[in-house]
């Protein structure tokens, strides 16, 4: 469990994280979403005691991170996959980390095998691709078999096979009852992985909702009929918001499938199509963060 209470971090006059209160629960994958610069990494740094909050608190398993007696056995973290000494081999890097927390050397071989880096374990990490660095970072996070995982953009730079592997890994870890917080800007990835979403925009909390609820809130009903204007009027009277789609179908928000079907029956309208349109996470996310994109390209 990760608990943030009024977490605020200012850098000079810039507010990176603004009064964030969130609880990340165990047993599910929590996706941490937000545009670049929205404060995701800063939040994770505060949780790990790497940055000191300006105000508010961040605790892991009920304690401030820096008070944990054996941090790697409780919390595994991947903040920056490039944060490695380039001249050290993958094996020595992991060995030094394992030793610092009194973990057995055999565990190093286990995690190297788990992430599939056996063939390059004795190579200096200088020559690693971003994907290999990610795997090494995930190996480091898993060394202590921790209860809580914080992974910042873990699939960045991975190939499709690697992305699927991370997705399954996160799912398994959550199913084992661990707390998994994973940030990403790849929304399609989150849609397949996360059960719950925490969305940030300019350091503020925009949403803390189950994935299904967020998608549901932005879903709609698509209905096609030869009597469009009649049905549209009936739907509006029933409380729906109706838009005409480009192919002549109606997009209805505010009513569910049953509601739209009943209105059509009562209005004596023939239907050629009645279907649910599930919003993509991308659309839901864009709707949430529309006003909160810090770095937006200017359209000429």
């Amino acid at each position: 469990m990760i608990e943030l209470a009024g977490l605020t971090k200012e850098y000079g006059t810039r507010i990176a994280v603004d009064d964030l209160t969130v609880t990340v629960h165990p047993g599910r994958v929590t996706g941490f979403l937000g545009p670049n610069g929205s404060g995701k990494t800063t939040t994770m740094r505060c949780v790990l005691g790497l940055a000191r909050p300006t105000s508010g608190t961040a605790t892991v398993l009920g304690q401030p991170y820096r008070a944990l007696a054996d941090p790697m056995r409780r919390v595994g973290a991947l903040i920056d996959p490039r944060a490695l000494h380039p001249g050290r081999t993958a094996y020595r890097h992991l060995l030094a980390l394992a030793q610092s927390n009194g973990l057995p050397g055999a565990r190093v071989d286990e995690v190297i095998e788990l992430v599939g880096l056996e063939s390059v374990a004795d190579d200096r990490v200088r020559g690693f691709s971003l994907g290999m660095n990610q795997r090494l970072g995930i190996a480091a996070a898993l060394l202590g078999d921790p209860d809580v995982l914080l992974l910042d953009e873990p699939v960045n730079g991975l190939d499709p096979e690697g992305i699927r592997w991370v997705r399954e890994l996160l799912r398994d870890l959550a199913d084992e009852g661990r707390t998994v917080l994973v940030s990403s800007h790849l929304m399609s990835e989150m849609e397949d992985t996360a059960d719950h979403l925490v969305v940030l925009g300019r350091g503020r909390l925009l949403a803390d909702v189950p994935m299904a609820e967020l998608l549901g809130a932005h879903s709609a009903v698509r209905v096609r009929t030869p009597q469009g204007p009649t049905l549209a009027d009936a739907l509006r009277r029933a409380g729906g918001r109706v838009e005409l789609e480009i192919d002549g179908a109606l997009r209805v928000e505010g009513l569910d499938l049953t509601g739209v079907g009943d209105v059509a029956f009562l209005a004596d309208v023939r239907l050629h199509e009645l279907s649910r349109v599930t919003a993509s996470l991308e659309a839901a996310y864009l709707a949430l963060t529309d006003d909160d994109v810090e770095y937006r390209a200017v359209t000429p």
């Binding site: 790990l48 941090p71 490039r82 944060a83």
Partner: peptide
Amino acid sequence: STEFASGMALVSLTAVPR
């Protein structure tokens, strides 16, 4: 200094927060 130059300090101080 190489810990800070390479970013390794992030990892080291996460492993040993004291």
